[in-house]
Design a protein around this nucleic acid. Structure first.
Lengths: 341, 341
DNA sequence: GTGAAAGCGCTAACAT
DNA sequence: ATGTTAGCGCTTTCAC
């Protein structure tokens, strides 16, 4: 690897001249510049970003923290984050925490300061809030994705209340009156919000809320992707339980597509026809939604936009060196009608 | 952020003493060590890995290059790579190329040398071979995942020939004689190998190979994940075409689960029953395989193992500074019988 | 307009 | 056993 020294020698100038030539913001004699550029070309010189970062106190690296990338939503978001960063000449350092707060704490400790210029974080829940607060206290730029914590942090996510509300209303508009809501862990603001939206949808249409139609703590991801999280129930188990209790319902709203798909499987196994006897909706619109039978009607979440906006927001802060802004961007869901409603 | 200087001042020693205390391999007076450790604790000091890397010429970062992370296989592999690296105190820098060789070339140029200690690469195809060769020529440790290029590079991947062969044989064992093989782009060694395995399976069982039962250039991923790749056909289109041509077949082997699932949808739309009239198999055993109706019989690929082994192999090379080893690890597929065969 | 030199945080060879 | 110092590759201030 050629260094700045090699280039300087090759061009017969001092290293600082090379640095200035490449830095752009200085005037160098055109003929000198020419020679330098030729040397750069010849040696295939690329400035060493580590040395640069050490000097400048900036690295053009961002830290990206998620529970797991093999989650349909995060894999989509990761993709768009990666692309957005490539375009802007930033690097992404990935950390999958598996929702383990210790691993996460460790990562922040190692990365903050000199390693990364800021973080994009997809792990926000009630457990790691203190961690996030301490990042903020140290003035480290942070953008949350997919999840938020009150209005305390920059975040870009889907409008969960509104999305769930529209889902409920779509179901009701199609004649449903008793909608089973398969929810995740209420530690996640996301789950609390979707629950709220579900309730609002009911209320909008004058349908009474029935607590026995809400199941919490459903595993939100495909079971194969993760070792089962304790305190969690598969959608299949939940639906089987509900059915065995003879609780009446004419629709299922899954907090994610995976949940809806799981529910669908169990329903079909019980000989319940979809959408005739029970209608189903998911939220997310990810891969499986198009492969279930019948294909799943769901609320489409713009994962790409979430990813792209999060890096825009973060880099804006980093580059302006202004960490005071607090933006909460809520992107709309859109209804995708397939065949389960 | 506390630096080594701050710690030295706090402990009343020279910075090199701090460095030695932390480095471990040197003897320092226990009382001194004690004071240093207390200062470290008090200040929450973490060595700056950038400075360290600059000095040592190593970064404990590995570059991870994939076409896209929002691909079921790669998202699984990424997850296990990330975990394996966390355990070993390495960082992962992610680059999604979108199969764009220019982006890829750029990334290597920027990263190699001082940025990363080595690469894990999931993009190998006939187009970027020169790029990979040049990495090798520069003595940069590389491990290929999921794909290989002859035996020219370290690689860990599934045994594609054997996997496809077993799939074909399983179909034949279940009475199939005319197996439609929906293949991807032959630029990928992976596709060439699976084709070969398919043919071997046929041969093993004395079934004649019929070229008209092979479709190449099928899009291997879920269409929603990516903008359609040109020169590519969806499995749905391919099957519709075959059916319209009245080509007879009693089974479909999809090069991936997504392909098999797409085929299944089209068949069902044509009123063909599965598995009665046509049996279906995929390869990979990823999320969608459990959600199709009927659930897909497929060859399970151990994505986790691929990820974990690839980092083990890479770090072995990096840490031994011996880049001459050439390991080609082929992991077995295992048959997962569900309901489409 | 360009060269010299300091310094970013750290490690390792060399003194003491 | 510990302090001193050079140097990793780069940017930037200061001279000339």
């Amino acid at each position: 690897m050629a260094t700045i020294k090699d280039v300087a020698k090759e061009a017969g100038v001092h290293i600082s001249t090379v640095s200035r030539t490449l830095g752009g913001a200085y005037y160098v004699e055109p003929s000198t510049r020419e020679r330098v550029m030729q040397a750069v070309e010849k040696l295939g010189y690329k400035p060493n970003p580590i040395a640069k970062g050490l000097k400048e106190g900036r690295t053009r690296i961002i830290g990206y923290v998620v529970p797991r990338v093999n989650d349909s939503v995060f894999s989509q978001i990761s993709q768009s984050i990666s692309q957005a960063c490539v375009e802007r000449d930033y690097m992404v350092i990935l950390c999958c925490t598996g929702e383990d707060t210790k691993i996460e704490a460790d990562y922040y400790n190692r990365m903050k300061g000199k390693w990364v210029d800021g973080f994009i974080i997809g792990t926000a829940n009630d457990d790691n809030r203190a961690l996030l607060e301490s990042l903020k206290a140290e003035n480290i730029p942070v953008v949350l994705v997919t999840r938020s914590i009150e209005n305390a942090f920059n975040a870009v996510l889907s409008d969960n209340v509104e999305g769930a509300r529209q889902a409920a209303k779509h179901l009701i508009a199609n004649g449903c009156k008793r909608i089973l809501f398969l929810n995740g862990n209420l530690k996640l603001e996301l789950c609390r919000e979707r629950l709220k939206g579900y309730q609002q949808g009911l209320m909008d249409e004058g349908i009474p809320f029935d607590q026995s139609l809400v199941c919490n703590d459903i595993a939100m991801q495909w079971a194969g992707a993760i070792s089962p999280v304790k305190g969690t129930v598969t959608p299949e188990q939940a639906v089987a339980h509900i059915v065995s209790q003879n609780i009446e319902f004419d629709a299922v709203l899954g907090i994610t597509d995976a949940v809806a798909a799981g529910a669908m499987t169990t329903l079909k196994n019980h000989g319940i026809t979809i959408p005739d006897q029970v209608k189903i909706m998911g939220m997310g619109d990810l891969e499986i939604a198009s492969f279930t039978d019948p294909p799943l009607t769901t609320m489409h979440q713009s994962a790409d936009t979430i990813g792209r906006r999060s890096v825009e927001l973060l880099l804006e802060q980093i580059e302006s060196r202004d960490f005071t802004a607090k933006t909460l961007e809520k992107l709309p869901f859109t209804l995708v009608v397939r065949e389960t409603v």
